[in-house]
Simulated scan of single mutants.
Amino acid sequence: MIELSAWAWVALAIAAVTIGISKTALPGGSTLAIALFATVLPARTSTAAMLLLLIVGDVFALIAYRRHAHWPTLLRLAPAVIAGLIAGFAFLAFAGDGIVRRAIGVILLVMIAVTLWRRWRKGRADAEAAPAGGILLSGVYGTLGGFTTMVANAGGPVMSMYFLATRTPVQVFLGTSAWFFAIINLVKLPFLAGLGLFEGPVLLMDALLAPLVVVGALVGLRVARRIPQQLFERIVIVLTVAGSLYLLF
């Protein structure tokens, strides 16, 4: 087992609960968990460890929202996502741990910038016509989503931005996201296994943290409509920025 301090375990426990909540109540909100995992663990190890916990959360997301997916959207995204996954795999295979660690920090900061831009744009976009989800839009977001999810499990904010840009209704947003990440995370398993990232200590750690993902998912399902989302997003943004800067410097 990787030697971790008590505070490191607390950080991982918070991250695990956050993963569960993000899967059932706040799509894309797992950026805080990404920052915590990458801060506590070696960068490549954090990507593998988080993937298994994300798959646990995917189960609950599918239970809640599986009937609302829009499959034509998923099929339109598929080619670009596959290209992004392959690019991300090549990056992980050849980049050193320090480079991956900084890359995660940069990716997270970019995702936060996108999120802030989206919040600023939201009020103005309400008055505009809904843009079409064309090939160019799906190609850009699909490729970036595939790359970021392979390298840092950080595809959530990218795809949330895509679904918002195409004015996807809320229930369809949640259902399509649930299927998208459930499929993508399963596809990523053999890639990361091929890099030898699922070692015994990682599996044991995930076994200890998985129940907390379940707790978070159940909490998310129960209070999804009661959580003051704006406050929660602000907390996630602040903590993620802090974690990203720590990874960079």
Score class of each variant (00 low, 15 high):
F163W: 03
M111Y: 12
A69R: 07
I21W: 08
Y246A: 15
F198M: 13
V110K: 01
M205Y: 13
R225E: 15
M1F: 06
V114W: 01
V202Q: 06
W117D: 03
P79R: 05
V214F: 06
L248E: 00
G133S: 07
F89C: 02
A193Y: 11
G216M: 10
A125V: 04
I135E: 03
A130L: 03
R124W: 00
D206I: 07
A193N: 09
G134N: 06
T115F: 11
L85Q: 05
E128W: 01
Q230E: 12
I82P: 06
L41I: 02
L92A: 04
G105K: 10
A6T: 15
F198A: 10
A103C: 13
G105D: 11
M205A: 15
T73G: 01
Y141A: 05
L208E: 08
A35R: 08
I135N: 04
T18S: 15
V110W: 01
L12K: 12
G175F: 00
L197C: 08
V56I: 14
L26T: 09
F198D: 15
L74I: 12
I183S: 13
T18C: 10
V241N: 09
V213W: 03
V110F: 14
V110R: 07
L116E: 08
V140P: 01
T240E: 02
R124G: 05
L136P: 00
G156I: 11
T176H: 02
E128I: 00
R225N: 15
L137A: 10
L247H: 13
A103R: 10
A25V: 08
G200L: 15
F232I: 12
V151K: 04
L108T: 05
L144W: 01
W120R: 07
T240D: 00
P72T: 07
P79D: 06
A93C: 00
V215W: 09
G29P: 09
I237T: 13
P228W: 13
T168G: 04
P72I: 04
G84K: 04
F91G: 05
V158N: 10
R167E: 01
A165M: 07
L32C: 13
G96C: 00
A16K: 13
S177K: 09
M111T: 06
A69Y: 06
V100M: 08
T176V: 09
L186A: 11
G146P: 11
G98H: 00
R102Y: 08
T168C: 11
G84W: 13
R67W: 10
V219S: 09
E3L: 01
V17W: 07
F191D: 02
F232W: 14
L108H: 10
S30C: 03
I63C: 08
V10G: 04
Q230F: 01
P72K: 06
V106K: 04
L75Y: 10
T240W: 05
V106N: 00
L51D: 02
I2A: 09
G57P: 07
T115K: 01
F181Y: 14
I184W: 02
M150E: 08
L51S: 04
T31Q: 11
L137G: 03
D97A: 05
L109H: 03
A132P: 00
V213Y: 11
G88F: 02
Q230Y: 07
Q171V: 03
R119H: 15
V202W: 04
L74S: 02
L92C: 09
L52N: 05
S30L: 13
L245P: 04
